[in-house]
Design a protein around this nucleic acid. Structure first.
Lengths: 350, 350
DNA sequence: AATTAGCACTCTCGCTTGCCGAGTGCTAAC
DNA sequence: GTTAGCACTCGGCAAGCGAGAGTGCTAATT
């Protein structure tokens, strides 16, 4: 029950046309625009067969055909060809990412911006998941008699800190000892691992004053670790979808926007997806049943993995979008390869 | 040309009714619901006068009246009475803010969430503007042979840091010296002030290696200062507006959402507003001409000032919203008053 | 002089009707 | 297997109509 060459051609034509115009496509217009050497009637017969096989649907009896999720899936898996980016887009990407090379989060945000600008869809980018990140050292620093800063530094230069106010006074010395103790205990362990351990126990100590200080600091330590594990999510171009005919109804648009209001939930969903370019179409998503979601991963220095993605209607230019995302993630991974030391100074140009 | 007592009553009634139902209100329904002791005909006459004075408008000949911006302004300035919050709302606010007392940004975000939950409008909250913040100390810390962390700490416990990769090797000693130099130079100066000074000159030094290191660090120092000056903006409940009849049309909704896509621009706008509770209605805003914007300020330890706000249609419950915002900002200021040391440990209950 | 009742008038909204055009599905001819 | 021809279906649009809400004016009432 494979499709014939002609059926594939027709399906391809229908998808192309529908992606372009967002309107059910009829046999006659296919026959006219894409000369397949057959009459509309023949195309009608083939379309009928394709519909029976589940590749096309009918909004109503006397309307043209619309590709189904299954059709898009077939297209993505078998029919689609890589597209070369336009020189303009390539330049745009190269320039924009280069301008903020040394500021991590900003680069990531720029990536999201680029993605939505070029594709005209909604896009997002996430900083890398840091559960594999290992702790380099922990430091406690005095601010004033009541306030100290707790700082956790990861091997790859990741830093997170909290300011905390103590109930008990502290001495410079006790801070230093506690810092050292904590560093010795946690150096080289991953954040995940550190969080799983029984933290309060880990830095138990005999000296009365010290254990009080530790008792004060540890809850914040835990929360700071958690904080360090959080990935940042940048979303861009959400309003692009208002320009698409599929979101002309306010209800659709609302559903769409509400989804993104739940950033935490969304982040979890995206983290759970496989690495590499992943396309999920329509019903393949558990929510967003009429959307397509494409994600891709970039790498930071080998270990850490971050994600970017676009969300749009199932009707989208799969070939272009995936090509752009591939180019973009390659570029990001290249930018974040830490082997060359030249990442600061030279290149600031807002 | 002051309004008569009766005209005020009628205007008040129209506003109340329209705020409730979002539909032009007619003379008959006013006469019925709010017994003013006069007939619809009389009310009609008064309405006609009110319209002439610019307090009411007519969507079309045979529709009821709708309050104008001017009417809302009059209402806010003269007619409106403070509302007492419900015990439930008070409890909600107290609990939610207490649960994250020691984590600044999270508290701010919670404030925005609360505001949108209680008012059912779109809301935002900004961390305090830090241009008045003074520098406490600056520190450079080694991570590995190529990487160091630059950290700026403000008097009120504000911390910002960047990880930077150097082109030249460094020694532990040179880092310490540079840290000290910078701290001596900048301690006690405000961020604004520090940025204005000729930073490169400020830490000029004779020793060759040192000046190389300094040259490497200073551009990042500037950017970190700038970064520290940035306020964080948290927006919540944007999708609430989809439930309002005034945004039933996709175009309106789009305009609204697009406004918030430009976070930077929006932040600037909001920072420029006066302190205290500020209400701007419809045309009084330069964009968002059919919205009302209410902002209020909270204080951190006297010096720093942050803002929260709501955005909605001009038709909103001004009395409730302003009361809630007052309560909320008072509560925030209280939370951030740094005189009592009890801010950590005791109270985490996610 | 202020208020009110009465009535004609206006405008929106929802409903129905009829028509056009696009597109199908079937049959019969090629 | 392909195509031409034709009846049929359905959405979309415009026109027409009635109901309902509300005004604005005038004349009567207090």
């Amino acid at each position: 029950m494979d499709l014939s060459e002609r059926q594939l051609q027709i399906l391809q034509a229908i998808i192309t046309d529908y992606v372009e115009n967002a309107e059910p496509v009829g046999s006659r217009s296919i026959a006219k625009k894409y000369d397949l050497g057959v009459s509309p009637a023949t195309i009608r017969n083939e379309m009928s067969d394709l519909e029976e096989m589940g590749y096309l649907t009918h909004p109503h009896t006397s309307a043209g055909r619309v590709p189904s999720d299954k059709a898009y899936r077939l297209y993505v898996n078998n029919l689609m060809k890589r597209k070369n980016l336009s020189a303009k887009d390539k330049r745009l990407i190269n320039e924009r990412l280069a301008s903020s090379r040394d500021e991590f989060d900003r680069t990531i945000r720029h990536a999201a911006e680029l993605l939505s600008e070029i594709t005209n869809l909604a896009s997002f980018a996430m900083t890398p998941a840091t559960n594999e990140e290992t702790i380099s050292f922990i430091r406690l620093m005095p601010v004033d008699e009541r306030t100290i800063i707790l700082m956790i530094v990861g091997e790859s230069g990741n830093v997170t800190n909290t300011t905390l106010r103590l109930q008990v006074p502290y001495t410079q010395e006790s801070l230093e000892i506690l810092s050292k103790n904590m560093t010795v205990n946690y150096k080289g362990r991953t954040l995940d691992d550190a969080l799983k351990s029984d933290i309060i126990e880990d830095v138990g100590t005999d000296i009365e004053a010290m254990s009080q200080l530790a008792g004060n600091v540890m809850p914040s330590f835990i929360r700071t670790l958690e904080d360090m594990l959080n990935v940042n999510l940048y979303m861009e171009g959400m309003t692009n979808i208002f320009n698409l005919p599929e979101y002309a109804s306010i209800d659709r648009a609302r559903d769409f926007m509400e989804l993104f209001a739940q950033k935490d939930w969304f982040t979890q969903k995206m983290l759970a997806r496989d690495d590499g370019v992943v396309v999920t179409i329509g019903e393949e998503n558990d929510s967003l049943k009429d959307c397509t979601l494409i994600t891709a991963t970039y790498h930071v220095d080998g270990k850490l993995v971050g994600k970017i993605g676009v969300i749009g209607p199932t009707r989208m230019k799969y070939d272009e979008v995936t090509s752009i995302m591939e180019y973009l993630t390659n570029n990001l991974s290249e930018t974040f390869r830490l082997t060359d030391g030249n990442t600061d100074g030279k290149d600031e140009e807002e």
